[in-house]
Write a protein that binds this DNA or RNA. Structure first.
Lengths: 336, 336
DNA sequence: CTGAAAGCGCTTACAG
DNA sequence: CTGAAAGCGCTTACAG
């Protein structure tokens, strides 16, 4: 015996399918008595409305799609949890898709979601204005997360990378550090370039005379290690290193330690992200914490609004998720 | 203008909708020429078949559901990535649902997936035979992951916890450690109890005379710290501590360090999981690595088989994902 | 090879 | 309040 349909319930309750539908969806236009009888019949038959049939007729899937570059790692883990929680709270299902190596794969994934979702949460390094125009259905509510958005009017959420970087530079300056070097992230990476921008800007406005020094990196621990070796060779040597992410900061500290340099006594080192490991390295890492889960939650909230009430969210709405300074031993600050 | 339907394509290509359907689904029973014309029309109209309509008629959603206790953290992050990759490879969409605080919430989530998925990947601490009988549709292909399965014949994947724990105990014994204490995980947790079982079994078979000592814990770093303090107070003191997970091992090491005890010279400490942090603590942690992504991949594979070919997977099929010893400094082994 | 028609399970005007 | 009927967009026997 297959799953019960609305017809079975109608027969069992001796009413028409129309009444069953009405009773089970809010109950307007049905006597309390009939409604009760219908509900009992549905329960007895373990009736669950067929999702596809309902989608077809209501044009609503009650599902949102999340297209992410990856699912792995601290960042995505927290992001997807924030999204999931917010979706759940709104009674929405979550369809995920990730790991698109190139723009073509991302486009395919995007297309495949068509008709399966009421809205889209999109984070993709491949997405630019052109890509979006090509691959996003016109009328599908969409919120971009940490994605290039020059030339688009989609709603967008992003991490306040420059603000965070500025906080860090101000912190280092306040401790008396003068020669602050910056380890860059991968070129073309938006987070990385915004962090660098914040670094430059903070130096320019607070300490215009101080040297601006950037070292190549790609977010990997190894690249941080190599940057650390470069720091060792510089004359005059920087008295602080600000890495565009924590893993590079950790790699950098390893290089300094191997050379017998004490952190933070001889050189301060700090990062960005506040990965869990940051607390556990020696010395614990001063870094910038970003509320990633909030990024997911807020994006979902914005998307939910658009879905429920198209037009309720102004075109091109932008929001930033705040970044906070987390002071630990590696920057040489007196710890309370 | 809304999305094009099959009718629009039929009109554009001057054929019936039946031909469009045939041409676009494999093309059997259509001349190459007609098929070509139809494809061009579809492309021109940017036609994408309406997913819901197709689901309704084919009874296939091309979607699998993953019901997980959480999405956050190393373990789930890796698990879901393994699942996602395997699902992608089979052209299946992935619907996720998580964070069910109790059995009732899990049941609701399970029901909500009905009709939306062709199969289910299920990991739930709330799921026992009774729960499954109550809440799983009879004929829905399902694979259980790391879930209690006494009394069920669902297919199931699980981590080889006892095997891993046995490896660790054998490793410690081979290094000459005699009094090996074990820090337990939360009571009722399947992974935790299997690891403890492996610990006891390995001691019983390889070193029946050695003391069996268990200390309470709940997988949190704090509980490991407290267990570490208990270890310090014991006489005779254990010469090795095996924690049921890495975070407790890390907490334990912190307690020992504060008391001025050297790891591994005075006491060896090791964990289970190989979280990324394990490499970075001082000293680096000897632990058991589990190929979590494999768990997800294999589960997906088993599920895919069941979906494609019901009956092709023997009822009650069980598989275990292997666990490997990762030797680092904390166990006092000579590192190559 | 091609098309007209039935039907998947539901919701929603439209009558009564 | 209640029911008969149309229709959402698709696929698939069934004829031709």
């Amino acid at each position: 015996m297959s799953a019960a349909t609305i017809k079975d319930v109608a027969r069992e309750a001796k009413v028409s399918v129309a009444s069953v539908s009405r009773a089970l969806n809010g109950g307007r236009g049905v006597t309390a008595e009939t409604s009760q009888r219908i509900r009992e019949a549905a329960l007895r038959l373990r009736y669950v409305p067929h999702a596809a049939a309902r989608m077809l007729i209501t044009r609503r899937t009650n599902t949102v799609g999340a297209l992410l570059p990856d699912l792995y790692g601290e960042f995505f883990s927290e992001l997807i949890r924030g999204i999931d929680l917010a979706a759940r709270a709104r009674g929405l299902h979550l369809l995920v898709s990730s790991s698109h190596d190139d723009a073509a794969a991302a486009a395919v994934a995007l297309r495949a979601m068509q008709g399966r979702v009421d809205g889209l949460l999109l984070m993709s390094p491949h997405a630019d204005a052109d890509f979006l125009r090509q691959n996003l259905p016109q009328d599908l509510p969409t919120v971009l997360m940490n994605t290039r958005l020059a030339g688009t009017d989609y709603c967008a959420l992003s991490v306040d990378n420059d603000g965070g970087a500025r906080l860090m530079v101000e912190h280092l300056l306040s401790l008396g550090h003068q020669r602050i070097a910056f380890i860059q992230g991968p070129s073309g990476n938006r987070d990385a370039s915004e962090r660098e921008f914040g670094y430059r800007e903070a130096l320019a406005s607070h300490a215009p005379g101080n040297p601006v020094t950037t070292l190549g990196g790609d977010f990997s621990e190894e690249s941080g290690y190599r940057a650390g070796q470069q720091v060792l060779a510089m004359r005059p040597r920087p008295d602080a290193v600000f890495a565009a992410n924590d893993m590079m900061a950790i790699g950098c500290m390893a290089a300094l330690r191997e050379a017998g340099i004490c952190v933070p006594e001889e050189i301060a080192v700090c990062g960005f992200d506040d990965v869990p490991m940051a607390r556990y390295v020696t010395p614990p890492l001063t870094t910038i914490q970003v509320h990633i889960a909030e990024l997911g939650e807020q994006a979902m909230e914005l998307l939910g609004k658009q879905i429920d009430n198209p037009g309720s969210v102004a075109t091109g709405t932008r929001r930033r998720v705040r970044a906070e300074l987390v002071v630990r031993a590696s920057s040489g600050a007196p710890i309370a």
